[in-house]
Amino acid sequence: MLAIYRTDDCVIHEMEEFQEGAWVSLVNPTMEESQEVAEAFDIDITDIRAALDEEESSRIDLEDGYTLILVDIPTTEIRHESKTYTTIPLGIILTPENLITVCTEETPILQHFIQRRVREFSTKKKMRFVYQILFRTAALYQSNLRIIDKKRTEIEERVGDNTEDVDLIELHELESTLVYFATSLRANGVVLERLSRYKRLEQYPEDKELLGDVIVENQQAIEMTAIYRDIIKGTRELMSSVIDNRLNNVMKYLTCITLVMAIPTIISGIYGMNVNSKGMPLANAPNGFAIICGIILIICIVALIVMKKKKMM
C-alpha cells in the first residue's frame, strides 16, 4: 500500500501526488509501487525493498542522493496458537526533500503520527521525524516488555499445585521473545550511535537533544530486557524444580504403597505353598483365615506408621 502524507500548520493530511516535504509510507508494497517510488526519487529499488526481508539487520547506509536507515521494531505474531512478540525491519529513507518509510505491515509506531498523537510533528523536519519514529520504537519496546513481565507474573502466581507443563512452554516463548528483543535493541543502538556521528545528516540542537533521549530510552529498553530475561530464567528454573519435586513425591507415595502391598502378597504366598498343613500355624484353626487377615492388617498399619514417622510419605 502506498500513501502520501504532509503536514501543514501541524495538521497532517493525505495527498494524491508526491510533493516536497511529504512523507511517503509504503506498507507491504507491491513491486509496481516500489518501482514507482524508486523512479520518482532516484532510489535503488533494492534499498526500498530491503525492509521487506525479515532477515535484514539494522544498519545505516549513506548512498548518493539519499540515506537508508534500517531498524528493528516490535510486532506481534501467532506462535503455537497464542499471540507472541517478535521484531520486523522498518526502513527509513531520507532524500533531500522527502522521507520514505517501508514496512511489511501496519505498525502502531507510524499510526501514532497518522492519528495525530505525536506533538510537534512535521513531515518537513525530516531528522526530527526520524528521531520521533525511533523514540516511539523504543517506547513500544518498553511497553511490550512490561506486558511480557505481566504474563510472567501471572504464570509465577500459578507456581505450586496448579503448575502445568504448558506454563513452562509459555515461559520458553517469553524468553525467546526477549532474545529477539535484546538482539534487535543492540543493533538499533549501533544505528543510533552512528546517527550521532554522521555530519552529512543536518541536525539542529533540538534534534540532537531528541536523539539523546532516544539513545537513553533504547538503553533503558536493553536493560529492562536483560533484567526480565534473568527473572524469567529464575521463574522457569523454579517451575522445573516444582514439577520435579511433585514427580518425586508421586514416586515416593507409589513406592510406599508398593511396600505395604508386598506384605499381604508375601504372607499369602507363604501360606499358598504346597506343604503339610500341620507345619502351618493356624492352618487348621476354625477362624484361621480371619486371624491371618487381621495379622496382615496390623502389620500393614504398623508399616504405614513407621513410614509416616520416617517422613517417607
Results as ranks from 00 to 15, higher is better:
residue 122 S to M: 13
residue 15 M to E: 09
residue 152 R to W: 01
residue 45 I to N: 12
residue 285 A to I: 07
residue 88 I to D: 14
residue 115 Q to C: 03
residue 163 T to E: 05
residue 94 L to K: 00
residue 65 G to R: 08
residue 76 T to E: 15
residue 211 L to K: 05
residue 218 N to M: 10
residue 22 A to S: 13
residue 56 E to K: 15
residue 93 I to R: 01
residue 177 T to P: 01
residue 21 G to T: 13
residue 298 I to P: 04
residue 5 Y to S: 13
residue 94 L to P: 00
residue 245 N to D: 07
residue 15 M to I: 13
residue 301 I to S: 15
residue 235 T to G: 00
residue 17 E to A: 08
residue 292 I to M: 09
residue 157 E to K: 11
residue 304 L to H: 12
residue 33 E to H: 04
residue 128 R to L: 13
residue 170 E to F: 09
residue 292 I to F: 05
residue 99 L to N: 00
residue 241 S to C: 01
residue 78 I to Y: 13
residue 271 Y to A: 09
residue 15 M to S: 14
residue 180 Y to Q: 10
residue 127 M to K: 07
residue 75 T to N: 07
residue 289 F to S: 08
residue 197 R to C: 10
residue 271 Y to N: 09
residue 243 I to D: 03
residue 212 G to N: 15
residue 284 N to W: 03
residue 305 I to Y: 06
residue 111 Q to H: 10
residue 213 D to T: 08
residue 276 N to F: 02
residue 44 D to L: 10
residue 307 M to N: 02
residue 270 I to F: 13
residue 43 I to H: 00
residue 299 I to W: 02
residue 307 M to W: 01
residue 125 K to P: 03
residue 284 N to H: 14
residue 171 L to N: 10
residue 263 I to Y: 01
residue 299 I to F: 04
residue 88 I to C: 13
residue 91 G to W: 01
residue 142 Q to P: 08
residue 100 I to H: 00
residue 12 I to R: 11
residue 218 N to L: 05
residue 192 L to A: 04
residue 105 E to L: 04
residue 117 R to H: 10
residue 95 T to D: 04
residue 285 A to K: 05
residue 89 P to Q: 14
residue 244 D to N: 12
residue 201 L to D: 02
residue 99 L to V: 06
residue 49 R to N: 12
residue 239 M to L: 06
residue 18 F to R: 13
residue 279 G to S: 14
residue 120 E to V: 15
residue 70 L to G: 08
residue 133 I to F: 00
residue 211 L to P: 02
residue 135 F to E: 09
residue 94 L to R: 04
